[in-house]
Each structure stands twice: as C-alpha cells, then as structure tokens.
Design a protein around this nucleic acid. Structure first.
Lengths: 193, 193
DNA sequence: GTCTATAGGCAGATAGAC
DNA sequence: GTCTATCTGCCTATAGAC
C-alpha cells in the first residue's frame, strides 16, 4: 500500500468516526479529540486531513448522504414504487433502537446546525433532507398518485417526527407503532380510476 | 415594590430570556453572557439566581411547559374534542415563521439534550413532550375514537416532523401544507356507529 | 442583594521536530 | 506525512468589594 492509499484510508477512518460520534454526541459536545480517538489518530494529525472542525462536520454529512444514496439505490431495484416506499419504512423501523438512542442522523444534525448563526453548514444538512424528499416524491409520481410532493412531505415528516419522539421518550416502540401505521397508509392509497 | 418582588422579577426576566435565547441558539452555543445581556442583568449576577447553567436550562424548559399548559387550558374551553384538536393544529400553523427559523422549542431542546451523556435534563425535556401527548390522547379518548394513544402519537409526531422539516429547509410553507392535511384528517375521522 | 474582576479549565488551532 | 507540544481565546463559575 503506497503513501497515497494510506493517507486516504486515515481520512476515511476519520470521516467514518466523525459520522458516528457526531450523531451520538452532537456537534457541539464532540471534541476533535473524541473523533481522533475513535479513529485511532493523534489529535494534532487531524488537521492534516481537515483544516477545521467544520470540514469534519461537512464530511460526516456527506457520509450520511452516501448511506442514504446506497439505500435508495437498493430500493430502486424493486419493481413497484409502492413496494419501494414500504421497504423504506421497514428500513426506518429496523433502525428503531438507534433512533431511540440518538435520533435520525440527518434530522438531529440539521436541528443542531440550524441553531448556528453561520448559515453555511445548515444549508448542507437541508440538502440531504431534500434529497430524501425528492426521491420519495419521485416514487409517488411514478406510482401515479396526485400531489406526489405533498405525499412525500407527509411520509418524510412522519419519519422525522417519530424519530424525534422515539428519541425524546427513549422508546423504540414508537418507531414500531408509527411504522406499522405508515405501512397501512401506503397500502390504503390507490390511483383513482 | 419590595426587594423580594424585584428579585423574583429579575429571576423571571432571566427565565424568559433563557427560554427565548436557548430556543434560538441552542443550549451549547448559548453562553450565560448571552442570556444575561438579553435579560439586562450583569453576567456575574446570574449566579445569584441560578447556581449553574443547567438550572437555567431547566427554568427554560419549565417556561415552555407553562406556555403549553396555557394553550391547552384555553383549548379546553371549546366544547368538542375535535375542535380542540383542530384549534391546536391551527395554533401550530400560526407559529410557522418561528418554526421555520428555529424549530419547535421543546422538540429542538429535546434533541439537543438527548445528546448529552448526563441523563438528567433530557428526561425533563421528554416529560414536556409527554404532557402534550397525554393531553392530545385525552381529546381522542373523550371523542370516543379507538386507540386514542396511537392517534395522539400520529398527531404530535406529525407536528414534530413538520417543524423539523420546515426548520431544516427554512420553509414555513411546509407548516401550512402539512397543517392543512392534518385538519382534513381530523375532519375525516368518525366514531364508528 | 448587586456587581466586578478574575480564576480555572478546556477546546480549537498552529508551529515545528522528526 | 506524522505527531508532540503548546498557544490562544473563550466560557463557566467563584471570590469578594460594595
């Protein structure tokens, strides 16, 4: 393995650690030392890969975006839009323990970043949310339902809401109950003849 | 005005300032100096009224709780449970500009406090959310609908979700669209004969 | 009760040896 | 490229004058 490969591997370790720790502890309570320790990299060395803490946050956001793209790409393999959306809901429910402990990675990050006067990073968090919203709307549109954007808003909003409540009340069961309702809702929707 | 009254007035000013500033900037990014300035109180003097920063956060949470209790008390004046719930949704929609800028005060506070290892304050944030959930469930129950707890979860979850998305995308219109849908949903619910 | 001055500690960032 | 040592600044909290 040459120097270039090793370097980018450390960068990747730092990015993965940042995504994980920032989700668990939040941006403000996480120190560079926390991320460095988790990645097995000395603190001072972090600055060779990321010039500022904000750049690490940016990298973590990109990591979450990538995970989301992976998920939707897998769902795109399913033939029927309704089944893709149901599989999405099932993926959310499967993450109920994590959601109860730390909330939705993107959602909680967006909340925290929106509190900052500096309005650069919060726009990037919004972009990740928007991408999910767009993918969801595309499914409803392909399905042939009217007002696909409104349906997408309802579905993603329900996800963010149930994640927040599960987190606030530390109760994964909330994800199960709301997830089941969303599945029934998707089953009940029909294209008008 | 005697000394006692003046003292508690300063305390109240600090509490109100804390509730406002902590909602706008978040807990971690808000310094005691920020709150003191907003309340017109010298920084060092804060400690006469609140021994720690956490106590100020606690006071802010209690303030939000009190606002919520005021709102539900007013709604309790309406005769029909359905109308109380619809008025609740309308109250949420009316706050759309604030929600788009800073999110739901209780919801965003809960998200932030849940990131802390110290598990004392996050339980208190959860309690505020739970109180809203309980009041909402009581309305559905009195209305005579089955599974009032599930209906309450759906409604409050929708509120948290739409507030988060409105905030993340900085778009108050999201509150309007989802609020209108929730009103239609409440109108569509009927007690089975 | 009110306020000033300051202690104490920690986190982000940098300089520079290797 | 890697890492150690350290600087700087800010924030919570306290001591103590008035």
């Amino acid at each position: 393995m040459d120097r270039r490969a090793r370097a980018s591997q450390k960068r990747r370790r730092l990015t993965a650690a940042a995504a994980r720790v920032l989700h668990e502890q939040g941006v403000e309570r996480t120190t560079l030392a926390d991320i460095a320790r988790e990645a097995g990299v000395p603190v001072g060395n972090v600055y060779y890969y990321f010039k500022t803490k904000d750049e690490l946050v940016r990298a973590a956001l990109a990591e979450h975006q990538a995970h989301l793209d992976e998920l939707t790409a897998a769902l795109d393999e399913l033939p029927a839009p309704r089944d893709r959306l149901k599989a999405l809901v099932e993926a959310w429910t499967a993450q109920r323990e994590t959601a109860a402990r730390h909330g939705c990675p993107t959602g909680t990050l967006a909340v925290e970043l929106d509190k900052r006067a500096d309005g650069t990073l919060d726009a990037e968090a919004g972009a990740v949310v928007r991408r999910l919203l767009d993918w969801t709307a595309a499914q409803f549109r392909q399905w042939g339902l009217p007002a696909p954007d409104d349906h997408a808003l309802t579905l993603v909003s329900a996800y963010q809401g149930m994640s927040l409540l599960a987190n606030a009340l530390r109760d994964p069961d909330i994800m199960t109950r709301e997830g089941a309702r969303l599945l029934r809702w998707l089953d009940s929707l029909e294209v008008s003849p």
